[in-house]
Design a protein around this nucleic acid. Structure first.
Lengths: 149, 149
DNA sequence: CAAAAATAATTGATATATCAATTATGTAAT
DNA sequence: ATTACATAATTGATATATCAATTATTTTTG
């Protein structure tokens, strides 16, 4: 079995790219906002656009599982960025509200994220981005297809 | 500030691709080898090819930091896949050796990984893989460049 | 309607991620 | 050789990842 090392595969390239982006983005966020992770920031962005998201739905959007999301929101509540209140429509789920402190973060965050995205995609054409999306989509489909077997 | 949601960005696509691959790969590994993660498997593969790697070097190859690697190797030692012994050349570092149990895993693992890579890249041309590598490389470089500022 | 099945969230256990501080050892400089 | 600096690994603290089991509520079905 002549297997190339993981470091020589395309998966290694994909992984290193996303890790490098996260490191870069986190650094730029931390410079302006203390005690705020990328993922927590994304939760705020999603909730801001779609206030009725359940924890489960948010979890899917940021690639976490429910258990992680429960704990993540716990800490965001502790840090006063979010507030949990009961949802009378369906008492299994919570209504997650953004506090004033959370709204402050939402004023500071967008320009940082905008800058992160722009500078990490500098010199890359629209066409290349399309290519990227298409090829990655194929890989993802291949993997997802087999998962449900 | 008109910011598109994280779920609409190329970063979301990249992240979802690598997560889907990991889920797929982990599932196939777990079916054949109990109590073995992708990352632990990669550590074994790297050590098998390069027996003199230090913990720090292994960590870089699998995108972990030193602290994580210390603990990861701790559990692999506990599970008897690895053995730590002193390195008389430089007593700051260990010599990490693969045990017989670890070598058994190394017999089972390669065909699984081979299958994982092949089926997740099915239908993707050599040219597309090159494109992918080039474009991701640009993103990574953009991010890494700014990190060291 | 009552029992069964499904869903949203939580909890426990264990592993990993991350940062900062610490220990032990090596190397370089004067 | 002694001081200063650099490196490899560990540890502590806290957050997150993951799986399985549990709780509290709907929803579905017979």
């Amino acid at each position: 079995m002549n297997l190339s090392l993981p470091s020589e595969t395309i998966f290694h390239v994909i992984e290193s790219t996303i890790k490098e982006y996260r490191k870069f983005a986190q650094k730029n966020i931390s410079e302006k906002i203390k005690d705020m992770t990328i993922d927590q920031g994304m939760v705020l962005l999603f909730l801001n656009e779609h206030p009725n998201l359940t924890q489960k739905e948010i979890a899917e959007l940021v690639f976490k599982d429910n258990a992680s999301m429960t704990r993540m929101i716990n800490t965001m509540v502790q840090k006063k960025h979010l507030k949990r209140s009961m949802n009378p429509e369906d008492r299994r789920r919570y209504k997650i509200e953004i506090t004033d402190k959370g709204k402050d973060v939402l004023k500071t965050l967008p320009p940082i994220i905008h800058h992160n995205r722009n500078s990490s995609l500098k010199g890359i054409t629209k066409n290349e981005l399309n290519q990227l999306e298409i090829i990655l989509g194929k890989i993802r489909t291949n993997c997802a297809k087999n998962i449900t077997l």
